[in-house]
């Protein structure tokens, strides 16, 4: 990464405390343009909490984070989304009783400038803008291989497709940084393979950076350029996949003290 460029995301000493528990402590991370960074760690390490901090669900009690050099902490979730950070959820959160295309269109609110009078009178501006986002929503659905399913109810999609629809919805917000919370959880190997292709494609096509939480180690090792490992809220290792895989601390966190099995990762 060119050190001179402003990183897309920079977290500085980010931390949050719930009562006496430091869920995340002194979290530092820089993500450059089009970079794919993995965030791993055992259950309860604080990975999703980091996501919740970066997306404004929680307010950090310490430190701060910047998107393209602009400080973001303390801002509301929708403001942060507008600034360019979008996410998916560990336990899929779709607008279940809405159609697939409406799920995507709901995230394009900012592209619709018509007001209530125009909506009620159905002015040409209304039709033009609605038409435009419908087109774009269709394109985004094609990106995640959901073409032809526009008018199904989101709830009726199979699991893997629901995960992909969540990605399409995140893409619709026109973000610069995509946070994926266990995108491959519960997927079979074929679906995971397809997902990887999609992630690769959107990274190139939309020039976005990705921060990925994943439990599937082979996946993380395969696609991430850098990995940061959390345990009990603190960073215990960071670096390339090889460095991390061989870090004694990581091995200890995942497997306990005996480190014979590690080569298999």
């Amino acid at each position: 990464m060119a050190a001179t460029k402003t990183p897309v995301l920079r977290c500085q000493h980010l931390g949050i405390q719930f009562g006496g528990l430091k869920a995340v402590d002194d979290f530092n991370l820089e993500i450059g343009e089009s970079e794919l960074v993995g965030l791993i760690g055992p259950n309860g390490a604080g990975k999703t909490t980091v996501f919740n901090l970066i997306t404004g669900v929680y307010k950090p009690t310490e430190g701060s984070f910047y998107l393209n050099g602009v400080q973001m902490n303390g801002k509301k979730t929708h403001k942060i989304v507008h600034a360019g950070i979008a996410r998916t959820f560990q336990n899929i959160r779709l607008f279940k009783k809405m159609t697939v295309i409406d799920n995507v269109k709901a995230a394009m609110l900012r592209e619709l400038h018509y007001g209530m009078p125009q909506a009620i009178l159905r002015t040409p501006k209304f039709w033009r803008e609605e038409q435009a986002i419908t087109e774009r929503a269709k394109q985004l659905l094609a990106v995640v291989h959901l073409q032809g399913k526009e008018n199904l109810e989101a709830d009726n999609l199979p699991y893997g497709e629901q995960r992909r629809l969540e990605i399409a919805r995140a893409l619709a917000t026109d973000m610069k940084l995509l946070l994926l919370d266990e995108p491959a959880a519960g997927m079979n190997p074929t679906e995971t393979e397809e997902l990887l292709e999609i992630i690769d494609y959107i990274r190139d096509e939309f020039k976005i950076s990705v921060l990925l939480i994943e439990h599937d180690m082979s996946l993380v090792m395969k696609i991430c350029e850098r990995i940061q490992v959390l345990d009990f809220g603190t960073t215990i290792a960071a670096g390339t996949p090889e460095e991390v895989a061989n870090s004694p601390k990581v091995i200890e966190a995942y497997l306990g003290k005996d480190n014979e099995v590690v080569e298999g990762i």
């Binding site: 929708h78 607008f95 018509y114 609605e130 917000t173």
Partner: peptide, 29 residues
């Protein structure tokens, strides 16, 4: 009817379905 069948209705239905996801989709809930 026009209100419901426009961005307003769509947004409000998204909030009904999942307000956390709605705010993560950039909606000012």
């Amino acid at each position: 009817y026009m209100f419901v069948r426009s961005k307003f209705g769509r947004t409000v239905q998204a909030i009904r379905e999942d307000y956390i996801a709605a705010s993560a989709a950039g909606i000012n809930v």
